[in-house]
């Protein structure tokens, strides 16, 4: 595995606000990496520095081996950026827009194939103004991947989506990741991070407060489990380090099926909320 993004000691300040207060990150090639955090945590600032949009105050940043503080055309043609919101090219059709942007890149994919990949083939002749929010976002993704990027940035890609559109969008991103594109995603949806990311970094107050596999984040896999069941018409529960033994004991006691049995670990949300709590 090679490193696609390497960040050391990144800081950025706006006036009195320390937006990014010293971030270290390594993102491997081919990985889907999610940066999770509440609004104003500094995740967009950090990502916009990696995308070459913003300058940094201090620290080292290397994206595909290039300092994004000095972006070159060649480097730009190797990355794809899907920004938070855009209402541009409203009067052009989907096909016209994707074809036009394909012309910017030395290694562009076939526009019609990309349109199909994002599921807009039957909307290809429609003007972008006439699309729904979710469909517009698919155009954004199409424009982000048209140049065959090695690395794709997605900034809060599903904000404002209905549940079905989000599922479909996740499948699209999963498909891109499967083809080997490195993906850096910011989101404030935990289920999104869990569904898409190989690794997650939680950012709060401009710092990374936890990093790792979403299933083990913050000691989630080894935390106490809660076993719940129903007995004599009442709900009972027990916190335990050994839920399997508890369930076996219950199974013996009930001689078979345990009524309303549940075994739960702290959800990613529980872990996340604990992580982003302001230290008092």
């Amino acid at each position: 595995m090679t490193t696609a993004v390497r960040v050391r000691g990144l800081t950025k300040r706006y006036g009195d606000v320390q937006a990014v207060g010293g971030i270290d990150l390594d993102i491997d090639t081919g990985e889907v990496f999610a940066i999770l955090g509440p609004n104003g945590a500094g995740k967009s600032t950090a990502v916009e520095i990696m995308e070459g949009y913003r300058t940094r105050d201090a620290g080292e940043v290397s994206v595909l081996g290039v300092d994004p503080g000095r972006p070159t055309r060649e480097w730009r043609s190797r990355i794809g950026v899907v920004l938070q919101t855009a209402d541009d090219v409203a009067e052009a059709t989907v096909r016209e827009t994707v074809r036009h942007f394909a012309g910017y890149y030395p290694n562009a994919k076939d526009p019609d194939q990309v349109i199909e990949q994002v599921g807009l083939t039957d909307k290809a002749g429609k003007r972008i103004r006439q699309l729904s929010g979710g469909q517009r976002r698919r155009v954004d993704v199409a424009l982000g991947v048209i140049g065959s990027p090695e690395l794709l940035f997605l900034d809060e890609p599903t904000t404002g989506f209905d549940p079905e559109a989000r599922r479909q969008f996740w499948e699209l991103i999963g498909g891109l990741a499967h083809q080997g594109t490195t993906i850096v995603l910011t989101t404030h949806y935990l289920d999104e991070a869990e569904a898409l990311a190989d690794r997650v970094a939680v950012v709060a107050q401009g710092r990374i407060v936890a990093e790792g596999d979403p299933t083990t984040l913050g000691g989630r896999a080894t935390a106490k489990a809660t076993v719940g069941w129903s007995e004599a018409g009442e709900h009972r529960s027990q916190e335990t380090d050994t839920p399997t033994r508890t369930v076996l004991e219950l199974a013996q006691r009930f001689d078979g099926e345990v009524p309303e049995l549940t075994v739960t670990r702290p959800s990613l949300e529980d872990v996340y909320l604990r992580l982003i709590e302001t230290p008092s």
Partner: peptide, 25 residues
């Protein structure tokens, strides 16, 4: 998958489209 990521940027193997042509587009 690129193996050049942490090293110097790969030399441009393909020519970038010309600025004039893109201006016309």
């Amino acid at each position: 998958m690129s193996q050049t990521a942490t090293r110097a940027p790969a030399p441009p193997l393909v020519r970038q489209p010309s600025a004039i042509q893109l201006g016309l587009s």
